[in-house]
Design a protein around this nucleic acid. Structure first.
Length: 433
RNA sequence: GCUGGGGUCUCCUAGCCUGGCAGGGAGCGGGCUUGCUAAGCCCGUGGUCCAUGUGGCCGCGCGGGUUCAAAUCCCGCCCCCAGCGCCA
């Protein structure tokens, strides 16, 4: 969420920024927030004055009782009256505070000045296209046909026991999945990232700090009867792990490479990508997470993007980088890039990476700060950034489709050969003649 | 899961039994003193509010309750430690 103090200090500036998202609802939340917050502060002042009065009397009672019990009863009656007044006022203030916080969480992050303006995804800006699209002298097969033909996954039996959007991954595709994850992890470790296996469930309180409320409805799975949610990405536990902490300046930037399973309901995606393993309920992902000083976050955003691009170049998958416009960007992001891989069977680019600068939006919710100078009392919120390094079902789809040969063989990218025990291709099983 | 012990400001710790403004130490930062890279002294080192001051309010794992008053008493929950149980 935004820092309420910033909103109080410059409501007009915040309003102008929110308008750039072209969503009437955001503005309504914001205007309502301003009035509720004003009312809250007024009521709080009154409450605190009353408490101050009550505290004085309470101290008086303590003194009187030292001198002798009989003197205290009259003052105690006054204190009791004040105490019940305070109880009433507290209820009012608490209701206002709950409403203020609810609205505050609904107001989106301030956009970076460089985020392109636009109404929806059609206004996203292609920054660059990298790699040559493969030229086939045959009709390229979809990944669905390839995994069926090569016996690399079983979708029907997965549906039987778990439902749609689940899969049994099999044989060489399992080895390739692990190879990709390990390859990506190694590249990040070389760059100073600390690899982390995080908890794959989180409590609601911590979770609310890293993701919009709407995600509890349409993204996250809840464990029945427990205050636990399956993580939708390792970004969530990795960012939340430092809640209520203050970093010394020399500890920043802090870089993690999270590796985990990701669970997503994909509610609202009915009918999209229903076949194959492109859009699924659980998948593996290596994620980059950075905590840094505010002035460094634009630089780190470019680094995270560059790291992800490096991995897709090594996988020999053609891609383009897209800058997400103000109407399409996630509410928690100030600036966002997507990397989209070329999918030859669909003749289109599909999202495989999302790189985000959340600036202080998550840090404010989670109360993550740093000292401006070592030992100094002055603190400010850190910035958090996250980016996919690689997510495997989608990377597998890209590799299968881009590296397929006429004879049904799929070439393994050279960079992965060492991670595949020297293997260079995935071939159909020899059929008995 | 059971039994017992615990969670206090950045860290350590006192206070809890017996309710009355959370005290001490260390580290860190700033200042002063001094012949030096020693030693000493003073201030600061949770959050928040606006009327910005010798100010108020809140804060002792979280949430309730009792009371004029709760770190302290009562209830529920979370987490840590030890032992037992279970277990890949």
């Amino acid at each position: 969420m935004l820092d309420i103090r910033l909103i109080r200090k410059d409501p007009e500036g915040v309003r102008r920024n929110i308008m750039k998202r072209h969503r009437e609802a955001y503005l309504q939340y914001f205007e309502r927030l301003l009035s509720v917050d004003t009312e809250l502060r007024k009521k709080m002042s009154e409450l605190e004055a009353k408490r101050a009065e009550h505290n004085k009397i309470t101290r008086l009672i303590a003194q009187q009782l030292k001198q002798g019990p009989p003197q205290a009863s009259e003052t105690q009656n006054m204190a009791a009256k004040l105490s019940s007044d305070i109880g009433e006022m507290e209820k009012v203030v608490e209701a206002l505070r709950v409403e203020r916080d609810r609205l505050l969480k609904l107001v989106p992050n301030l956009l970076d000045d460089t985020t392109p303006d636009g109404l929806d995804e059609t206004a996203n800006v292609v920054v660059r296209s990298v790699g040559d699209k493969p030229v086939f002298d045959f009709e390229p097969k979809s990944h669905v046909d390839l995994i069926t033909q090569l016996d690399l996954a079983d979708l029907d039996r997965a549906a039987k026991i778990a439902g749609s959007r689940f899969y049994f991954l099999k044989g060489d595709l399992v080895l390739l999945d692990l190879a990709i994850l390990r390859f990506a992890l190694d590249r990040l470790v070389e760059k100073g990232f600390t690899p982390v296996f995080p908890p794959e469930m989180m409590r609601r309180e911590a979770y609310e700090g890293v993701t919009p409320l709407q995600d509890f409805e349409d993204t996250m799975y809840k464990i029945e009867g427990e205050d636990l949610y399956l993580i939708a990405t390792s970004e969530h536990p990795l960012v939340a792990m430092h809640m209520d902490e203050t970093f010394e300046p020399e500890e920043l930037p802090l870089k993690y490479a999270g590796i985990s399973v990701n669970f997503r309901k994909e509610a609202g995606a009915h009918g999209k990508d229903t076949k194959g393993i492109f859009r699924v309920h659980n998948f593996n992902k290596v994620e980059q997470v950075v905590f840094c000083r505010p002035e460094d976050s634009p630089k780190h955003l470019e680094e995270l993007l560059s790291n992800a691009e490096e991995i897709f170049r090594a996988l020999e998958v053609p891609y383009r980088v897209v800058e997400i416009c103000s109407g399409d960007i996630s509410p928690k992001n100030a600036k966002q890039y997507d990397v989209e891989a070329w999918m030859p069977a669909q003749l289109t680019y599909r999202e495989v990476v999302s790189t985000s600068n959340c600036t202080s939006y998550q840090a404010v919710s989670l109360n993550i700060k740093y000292r401006l100078r070592h030992g100094s009392a002055e603190k400010d919120y850190v910035h958090t950034l996250n980016s996919t390094a690689v997510a495997t079902p989608r990377a597998l789809v890209a590799i299968l489709e881009n590296h397929q040969q006429r004879d049904g063989v799929v070439k393994i990218p050279r960079a992965l050969t060492p991670y595949m025990n020297g293997r260079t291709e995935i071939a159909p099983k020899a059929k008995p003649t």
